[in-house]
Amino acid sequence: MIRTLDLDSPIPEYRTPAVSEESRSIMDQLRDAIDSSLSTIFLGKIKMSLFSEVSEIEEECSINNWDGAGSEPISPIAITMAELLIYSFPQGIPLPELTPATDGEIHFDWRVGHKQALTASLSNNGFLSFAFIKGGRRFHGSEPFEGTFPERLSDLLNELYALKRVA
């Protein structure tokens, strides 16, 4: 009988009363490995959906004055920078919304509720700039992007979503 794994369903429990403790441990390790692979696959799906959005933005904003405010097209470098940031996403990063902006960059927007938001973008020369608001706390800054998901962004996302450390 051929069995297929349904990615949308939880992994079924495979338990029989006749299995030894050692076998059970092996099965648990196998489940963890499958969980990890599925998480990786899921992260891959998230990244693919974001890459697809970047492509849409590239198509929509590839002309002069795409926003009616006289903005130049979103440049190929800006597209690449956005893709680099997406590549660096570790597991557990909440899904952002991607937004083309008049500064020629693609902004990554996370919002939890009223006055609880974070926005960030990578400039053409590889600098990450971001702004954060949570209640009365406001913060902005910039730093060079070094290829891995910025620790500052991780910290701010953790604070925004009140999560355990995501990366």
Partner: peptide
């Protein structure tokens, strides 16, 4: 005038207010 400048619920994103050149 840019659909991505609003969240689904109509809340404007920061990019909606950024200045022009």
């Amino acid at each position: 005038f840019q659909r991505r400048h609003l969240y689904q619920d109509g809340q404007p994103k920061p990019a909606a207010f950024l200045p022009n050149s």
